[in-house]
Write a protein that binds this DNA or RNA. Structure first.
Lengths: 98, 98
DNA sequence: ATATTGTACAACATATATGTTGTATTTGTC
DNA sequence: GACAAATACAACATATATGTTGTACAATAT
C-alpha cells in the first residue's frame, strides 16, 4: 500500500464540523484530555510504573490505569495526590488562542 | 484590648507539629485547597456570580458553592468545564521549595 | 422596612469515582 | 517460545460528586 499523507487535525476538524453534537463532546473533553496526557508524561518521565505511582499515592494500579485511559475523570483530590508524589503543582494560565 | 502580633504561619506549624495525624491531613489537602482558592479568585475577577458561572458551565449554583467551600472535591471534568468558561488552562509546574 | 441579589445549607436521588479482587493482555527480555 | 513486568479489562461494593428542590442567611439598594 502506498503512503497516503493526511492532515490529522484537518481531518478531525472536518469530521467535527459535520456533527455538532460530536463537536460539543470533543470540545468539552479537550482540556481534560490534555491534562491527563500530561499526567502520563510526568509519570513516565520519572520512571515510575503505574504500580509504583499507585503505592506512593495510596491508590490502586487499576485506578491509575482508568485515569490515564480517560475512563474516569479523577477528583481534584486524587489528581493533587498524584501531583504531590510527582512534585508538581497546578497552575491556572490564561488560555492562549487556539 | 491591645494588639497582639502573631505569626499565623508559625502558629499553624506549631499546631501541626504537635499532631502528626492532623499534619498529614493538612498536607494532603494543601495543594487542592490552593487550587480551589485560585478558582474563586478567577470567578470574582471576571465579575461572575456563582449563578452566572453555573449557567455558563451547565452546573448548579449549589455545586459551585460546594466546590468553592471545599465541601466537595470536583472531578477534573467539572473543573475543566469551569476553566473553559473562564478561558483558563491547567498547567503542571515543578513544585518550588516551600 | 422591603426587595433584590448572592451565597450557603439541607435532604434526598442519581451518577460516577474509587476500592477490591481476579485475570487477561500487552510489552520487553532472555 | 518462555518468562516477567507493566498495563488493561471486568465485575461488584462502597464512597463521594453531582442533580434537584427548597430554603435560609447575608449584603446591598430602593
Amino acid at each position: 500500500m502506498p503512503f497516503v499523507e493526511i492532515d490529522v487535525n484537518q481531518t478531525i476538524n472536518d469530521i467535527l464540523d459535520s456533527d455538532a453534537e460530536l463537536k460539543q463532546m470533543w470540545n468539552e473533553s479537550r482540556t481534560e484530555y490534555a491534562v491527563l496526557g500530561e499526567l502520563v508524561k510526568l509519570r513516565k518521565a520519572q520512571g515510575l510504573s503505574q504500580v509504583e505511582l499507585a503505592e506512593k499515592t495510596g491508590n490502586k494500579q487499576q485506578v491509575i490505569s482508568r485515569i490515564e485511559n480517560k475512563e474516569n475523570s479523577p477528583t481534584l483530590k486524587t489528581l493533587c495526590g498524584i501531583l504531590d508524589v510527582l512534585n508538581y503543582d497546578i497552575q491556572f494560565v490564561p488560555r492562549v488562542q487556539v
